[in-house]
Design a protein around this nucleic acid. Structure first.
Lengths: 344, 344
DNA sequence: TTTAGCACTCGGATATCCGGAGTGCTAACA
DNA sequence: TGTTAGCACTCCGGATATCCGAGTGCTAAA
């Protein structure tokens, strides 16, 4: 495998390229502080590293840049843990400073702050409310045709939508329906609500409400979960400052993809918990072939419910981004869990 | 002023440039169908139009392009009303097809559809809930430290946030507080809520709740309006297909501005109702100097509560965009008003 | 007043040149 | 045997020159 010296040189080249965006040549590398080898020696080692697939040359007489494999090795074996600056820590903390907060706000802000700190683009998913349990249902008639249905979960999430009100249902019926739902469905995970309508609710409705048919379909509408996937973006414009994205056509593909919330959700949804790093082609997506994506999930009560991610060029400041993302995902998990978990 | 012939030529040049993005020369203009003048004649007229400031030349021996004044004149006096295609009408209608809907969803989708139909970028400002009136307050404790406060308005908007629960307040206190608020504040416009706390609510709290101090500050938190401005974007990536935005630096400024929700809100908030067209420098913003913005407000019960806008290059398909925007803003206003207005 | 003719302009595409940073290879050296 | 100096070679990128074509303004004729 690789000698220590080769590892050292690989690391120096990746670091150098990450910061300069220019291919690294033997001469400039040799002049770098801490590098005690002559250009010729370095050239030999660099040729070997290239042969093994860790480096490549944009053209035959240029310096070396890391290949994807080079980055991968760097990320897996050479990464120095990054110490967050106090500025960074302070900025992350500020997210949770407010007393009154909406989870949605916090998550949205996370995206913004993350992109500001990294100067890459950030994508934050979630939190998923799939598994959270119904706490309360409210049906509030606004006028004779329209009502608002509100579902509150144990995670403090409030889901609401406007439903049309069948003429046949009187307001006393609405109250009965709401009572039945609260009675029978409290504690039921949202994804089971539709099931429970037939198994538990339908019978009761038939018994207690005159217009059974309207009541049932109204109930179904009321409990309909918004299938909306929550995807928040921050700092997409940052990508335009990166030298690798000077070409509009390349960047257009990326931006188009970044507007497809559904695709992005599929790409980033929290599967395994922990950190995930995808470099270049590993993204299995044409548009991201020059990008790396680093993501981490955050969790509520130990279950991953969302992810925070950074998209940047493959030439990304991996150590710093990883440090930030890990820190923030821990904080997010902690705050969510603290806020919404029963202590007893 | 301008002769009929000059108007006709100006119109032909603007139309031509809008569709080709290339400066229009006398020769090609003369060959255009319906144009019965020789290149030389056109050159004379074009020189006159340039002297009057309606046209300009990118360089001394190129064809003409419209100046901002030229576009302005085109928009104000030459615009042919555009007939929407049935495809366009169908797409717009699909927005309102669902039975269960959230206003927020509809508004968000408007942005997407608008940008797809125009292939420019769209910005939609959400319905302001400033003036809408409180319908109901709910306080739902989640655990011993946290509660969810829910405000429902007569426009079907549901505002919610997580508030921390002072230990001193028992759940019976919460109920009392909720009752007082519902009793006293129903029908009060949201922007007056904070006022009413001191004038109406504080006294009652002192009478009925033991821990007056905590109760009061808790109430204030409960009624805090989220100062969030709702700004939705669609199809920003479309801008990258426009030939005038091939230069990344130019486009970066635009994208950065488009990420500042607050600035965009200031720029586009519904002041006068009706259509607004801002061409190039009229936007009074460096980043938008090569853009035009067309916006129209939509209203609820006759009050403008939001706007829908299109951002594109100054070389924009004004007739089509105006047609689409006017149509959609009318539809939006109609639907909102129908859904949430009492008939009696 | 309109048009044809003509000399002129300028941008953009293409070709050519040149310097510099970098490489690989060979041979000398520790 | 591993390291280093030397050298010829490569290739990119910027600068310069050239050419072509679309378009213009002006003048003079219709």
């Amino acid at each position: 495998m690789l000698t220590d010296r080769q590892l050292f040189i690989l690391q120096a080249i990746v670091d150098g390229y990450i910061h300069s965006a220019e291919p690294v040549g033997s001469r400039s590398l040799s002049k770098q502080s801490g590098m005690s080898y002559s250009p010729a020696t370095l050239r030999n080692e660099m040729a070997d590293l290239e042969e093994m697939g860790f480096l490549e040359k944009p053209h035959s007489s240029s310096g070396r840049i890391p290949s994807e494999r080079g980055y991968r090795h760097y990320v897996d074996h050479l990464l120095l843990p990054h110490q967050l600056s106090s500025r960074e820590i302070h900025d992350l903390r500020s997210l949770f400073a407010r007393k009154v907060m909406e989870t949605e706000q916090v998550v949205k802000q996370s995206a913004t702050i993350l992109s500001e700190l990294t100067s890459y683009a950030s994508i934050v998913l979630g939190p998923e409310i799939f598994e959270s349990k119904l706490k309360q249902v409210q049906i509030i008639p606004l006028n004779d045709r329209t009502a608002v249905a509100i579902l509150v979960t144990d995670t403090g999430h409030v889901e609401n939508h406007t439903v049309s009100l069948p003429e046949a249902l009187k307001s006393s019926d609405l109250e009965k329906i709401a009572n039945i739902l609260n009675d029978r469905l409290r504690g039921v995970p949202l994804y089971q609500l539709q099931n429970k309508i037939t198994t538990e609710v339908a019978g009761l409705l038939r018994q207690h409400v005159t217009n059974y048919r309207e009541a049932l379909s109204f109930t179904e509408e009321t409990l309909q979960k918004s299938s909306e996937e929550k995807v928040y973006y921050g700092g997409k414009a940052n990508l335009l400052s990166q030298p690798e994205f000077k070409d509009v056509d390349k960047v257009r593909m990326i931006f188009e993809l970044l507007e497809e919330d559904h695709t992005m959700h599929e790409l980033l949804k929290p599967e395994q918990s922990g950190l995930m790093i995808r470099i270049g082609q590993e993204n299995a997506n044409q548009a991201f072939e020059d990008c790396s994506i680093i993501s981490a999930s955050y969790s509520f009560n130990g279950n991953p419910v969302g992810t925070i991610s950074i998209v940047g060029p493959t030439r990304m400041e991996y150590p710093r981004v990883i440090g930030l993302i890990e820190h923030l995902s821990r904080d997010l998990s902690k705050v969510l869990t603290n806020l919404y978990t029963d202590l007893y």
